[in-house]
């Protein structure tokens, strides 16, 4: 049976009339990199804060590492970087980590280790205030790693980084996932999630819209064939695949089938004397799926606002 390190049921957080998180049910399995995807203001950070015990839910339940959020047991195995990295500007990077290490009873040798992991050893003695944004973010990840946690909660860790810094951060997250750590990564960057995550939960307006692997969310792709004459090709394709699996878009056939069928269809079209100019796999990106899902949510919200709800 798959072990769930994070599990929420009916999780809801209201601030007065405003609903930040609504009836959220998500699961993070041991050893996976879970992408928590949603536009800004979707409720990602509020959810993460509930999971860390910083914010209490209005209703619903959550367990983290089998215990209540914020309990000593759940925090002992959880490392976190929520929102921007928060440190004391007058302390050095090393001293900032020493403060946290003392709070969680971790030997000072671990501070040196995590500084090494994130590549900050050379600047560890400098004041935090003098760090670049990328260095601050890396120090935040170092702090999250201090406890050698089972679960890492990272809230938009590439925020504000330059392309090289983003690539470094993603490589680090992939490496941590490869090392067996479970990572809960919140992001509004689709490419990032697609690159590093095993499973994804899409949140918008405080509600979880879908949860699954990237492939599951993308669904099955389609074969796009540019062929002449188009009508005759459509007839052949419909005979082979069925009426409802063939559509015509932008002067091409779009066939709802898998890549293995592509060669067979190509052969049949050529044998029928048609001219096949191009044949390719038409895969929907996570971005398209995401926009599709969240646009429905936005339409719903707009309609609600319009009707005075």
């Amino acid at each position: 049976m798959t072990e769930h390190l994070v599990e929420t049921k009916g999780l809801t957080k209201r601030y007065g009339e405003r609903v930040a998180v609504e009836d959220l049910a998500l699961t993070v399995r041991r050893g996976e990199v879970y992408g928590f995807l949603g536009p800004n203001g979707a409720g990602k950070t509020t959810t993460l804060k509930i999971l860390l015990g910083l914010v209490r839910p209005t209703s619903g339940t959550a367990t983290v590492l089998g215990a209540a959020p914020g309990s000593a047991k759940s925090l002992a195995g959880t490392g976190m970087l929520v929102e921007s990295p928060a440190f004391y500007p007058y302390l050095s990077g090393r001293d900032n980590l020493r403060v946290l290490a003392q709070y969680c009873r971790i030997p000072a040798t671990r501070v040196t280790e995590v500084l090494e992991i994130v590549g900050l050893s050379a600047r560890a003695g400098d004041r935090f205030a003098s760090y670049s944004l990328g260095m601050k973010q890396r120090l935040g990840v170092a702090a999250a790693l201090l406890k050698d946690p089972v679960l890492l909660v990272l809230d938009e860790p590439t925020n504000g980084l330059d392309p090289a810094g983003m690539a470094d951060m993603r490589a680090l997250i992939r490496r941590l996932g490869g090392d067996g750590k479970t990572v809960l990564l919140s992001s509004h960057m689709l490419g990032e999630v697609q690159q590093v995550c095993d499973r994804v939960g899409v949140i918008s307006g405080g509600r979880l819209l879908r949860e699954g692997t990237v492939d599951e969310l993308r669904g099955q792709g389609a074969v796009r064939v540019t062929v002449e004459p188009l009508d005759e090709a459509a007839t052949i394709a419909r005979r082979l695949l069925g009426e409802d699996r063939v559509t015509i878009e932008d002067q091409s056939l779009v066939l709802d089938t898998d890549q293995d069928d592509a060669a067979r269809i190509n052969r049949e079209l050529v044998l029928a004397g048609l001219t096949v100019r191009a044949l390719g796999w038409n895969e929907r990106s996570l971005e398209e799926i995401f926009l599709e899902m969240t646009s429905e949510e936005r339409r719903f919200a707009t309609a609600g606002a319009g009707s005075g709800v």
Binding site: K49, L52, G53, L54, G70, A72, L75, A76, T78, M80, V82, E83, S84, A86, F87, Y88, P89, L100, Y103, C104, A143, K147
Partner: peptide
């Protein structure tokens, strides 16, 4: 007050010793 200004309170409270201990 500085802990709130720098947002470091959340870092302290997620280390594990408990809020009253902090």
């Amino acid at each position: 007050g500085g802990e709130y200004g720098w947002n470091t309170m959340k870092a302290l409270l997620t280390q594990g010793p408990g809020r009253v201990s902090v």
